[in-house]
């Protein structure tokens, strides 16, 4: 069964058609790469799934449930977590606190219980241990008590992934996780994504410009241009698709 079904989704900002009837499916356990030139609408797609943007038309189904009926803060509890292309971390929090905030949807101490300190201690203990485990996995444990503010970009990119994993998602959306990383870091990242997919049984939707990485780890690739899907298939098929080549290299006159 499909984990995510995007059906005819259109998003319009004033005169700009960011997405024009985009449709694709992702199957359980797949790593799906979303590629396309700048402005193709990849991040817009992410923002529709995480309910930051309201689509003008279309439907997004997650395991059969219409996501457009769910409020923005309800998405995480359904098992969808994401990272941000340009970092949307909590700068004053430490790496540990950032990761624990990622686990927000796994906890249940709310306003009243936090004021009366009922069940706070055990929940904090659990979240801290789990967050530490994830940080250690991504090699961030030594920095756990540093505030996120002022750390190198590559480190913060990894923290984005750690924070998303803390939500124990079943669908992980990664928005250009490799941007700004060095070559060896990119290789390491590919390995990490593969590992966590296998270990946690994740389905991954990946937006990335780093072609060798996308083609290397994706089970399926969707290519976009101007808000439309221009190709879909295995990395090999998409790489050799004339539309994709035209979109990236231009057509002969």
């Amino acid at each position: 069964m499909s984990v995510l079904q995007v059906q005819d989704v259109s998003v319009r900002f004033g005169g700009i058609q960011a997405l024009a009837g985009l449709s694709f499916d992702i199957d359980e356990g797949q790593i799906c790469g979303l590629i396309g030139p700048n402005g193709a609408g990849k991040t817009t797609m992410f923002n529709v799934v995480s309910r930051i943007y309201e689509p003008t038309e279309g439907k997004v189904l997650y395991r059969g449930q219409d996501l457009l009926d769910v409020p923005a803060h309800g998405i995480a509890r359904l098992g969808i977590a994401r990272t941000f292309q340009n970092l949307a971390l909590f700068p004053t929090m430490t790496l540990l606190q950032n990761t624990m905030t990622g686990a927000h949807c796994t906890g249940n101490v709310g306003f009243v219980r936090s004021a009366l300190r009922i069940g706070v201690r055990s929940e904090e203990k659990r979240m801290e241990a789990e967050a530490f485990e994830i940080l250690a996995r991504l090699g961030l444990a030594p920095l756990a008590y540093r505030p996120a503010m002022g750390l190198p970009f590559g480190t913060l990119k990894r923290l984005e992934i750690a924070r998303a994993l803390a939500a124990k998602p079943s669908l992980l959306l990664l928005d250009e996780p490799a941007s700004g990383l060095t070559h060896s870091e990119v290789d390491e990242l590919s390995e990490t994504i593969h590992d966590v997919r296998d270990q946690f049984g994740l389905t991954v939707l990946l937006v990335e410009h780093h072609m060798s990485m996308v083609m290397g780890i994706s089970d399926k690739v969707v290519a976009m241009e101007f808000g439309r899907k221009i190709a879909e298939g295995t990395p090999h098929e998409v790489r050799n698709d004339p539309h994709v080549i035209a979109a990236y290299l231009g057509t002969e006159v």
């Binding site: 803060h73 949307a88 004053t92 905030t101 709310g110 706070v120």
Partner: peptide, 19 residues
């Protein structure tokens, strides 16, 4: 507590907090 972290999250980055 968890609620306190969500307060700080709202201060630091509302969009990320909602996500």
């Amino acid at each position: 507590s968890r609620f306190g972290r969500s307060m700080v999250a709202v201060r630091d980055n509302e969009t990320a907090a909602a996500v």
